[in-house]
Design a protein around this nucleic acid. Structure first.
Lengths: 202, 202
DNA sequence: GCATATTGTTGCACAGTGTGCAATGTTTTC
DNA sequence: GAAAACATTGCACACTGTGCAACAATATGC
């Protein structure tokens, strides 16, 4: 973890800009938030803003909304239930990531007020979905490609829901995320099996 | 189905613009596709372009990528397996919608080359997901809100995959979509249950 | 038919977005 | 401390998207 002065400044500036973006967006509304306003709030030039983020949406989400999966070769060959492995994999990812509850709350507040931001939010999630799909492909085999995509999309969505729950509840630790994912995936499985052998009573 | 001259023209112009947008995007690449180029290709002014679509991405997707659920009160109270009901609901929606295979193929070709378009694609799907979520909520009860969202997202994704398969295979009729959704959801359920009672042999 | 209301198209002005480039600063390297 | 590497900025420029007002095309009522 070698952090030169440059690296630290670059990281800090990136965070400063994000903070400025979120602040201005909450204060003035996203529509009245120009890149110029964000830059001024962050104490930099407009041009520099674009050296850090492609647009104001990206600046608001920053790196906060982004999940990286780390070395998980164990996944392909595991004999444990898929649900537990997925929950563990994604829970671990959330665990390793510096999730900032306060910041996330603010970001979610902006997103809630401005659906336009959800687009980029989903795109970020899709990056994770692609990674999960690859892992599921390795585990299930190539003839299950479609199922792998479906399952990956479901799992990623479960992660999102779990993080939402975690964000909203101070008493929850990061470990709760793994549990939440597993529990809910089991719950969904139950519903999917409902009356599949046959219909229940009225 | 009263179609005044105005209505017909408006619809036709909308389609003309979409065609122009897809054509230019395939010819020059999305990055070299200006709204001006699209407008010229469609034989209208730039200003008029923006009277029809908010931006070039929307113009390319047009109304083709958009699924409406129609009156489906039956869903909430049905006693059939959830999987079959979801497949029927979504299959019916695809059925009622004027899906144009050739146009969809072109659109998908543009999307494939330009991931930026996927954002709006997903946003369109999300509209459907929201509707499905509401129906599942009515069926499952409010204490299953999270599960409803997960399931809706899975089902919508299944619909997308089914449409993809349908688009790519001339021999498939629209009815195949319902079957594909049901089959794959069952397949996913199987995977989710895998070794959940307990681990299989090596 | 014809007058009038409604809706559609267009040009124009204008604020905002995003990028290439070159000048100027700042940090790193040796 | 000189030279390389990288960061910040201003400037020019092409493109996006919207409000507004003029004008054209269609619809409506008589």
């Amino acid at each position: 973890m070698v952090t030169s002065l440059r690296e630290r400044r670059r990281l800090q500036t990136g965070r400063d800009i994000q903070m400025a973006a979120v602040t201005v967006a909450l204060r003035n509304g996203l529509d009245n938030t120009t890149t110029e306003a964000i830059a001024t709030e962050a104490g930099i030039s407009t041009r520099t803003f674009f050296n850090y983020y492609n647009n104001k949406h990206a600046a608001i989400l920053g790196d906060a909304v982004r999940i990286d999966l780390i070395g998980a070769g164990w996944f392909a060959g595991s004999q444990n239930p898929v649900i537990d492995d997925l929950a563990h994999l994604l829970g671990q990812a959330a665990h390793d990531h510096p999730l900032d509850r306060a910041l996330l709350l603010k970001i979610l507040e902006v997103i809630e007020a401005h659906p336009a931001l959800q687009e980029m939010f989903r795109t970020r999630l899709d990056e994770t979905t692609v990674l999960v799909t690859e892992m599921l492909n390795a585990r299930l085999g190539d003839d299950m490609a479609v199922e792998a995509r479906l399952l990956a999309s479901l799992a990623t969505q479960a992660l999102t829901e779990a993080v939402m729950t975690w964000v909203a509840d101070d008493s929850l630790g990061l470990d709760a995320i793994t549990t939440l994912i597993a529990t809910r995936l089991r719950s969904v499985t139950q519903i999917l099996m409902q009356s599949d052998t046959h219909a229940g009573p009225l």
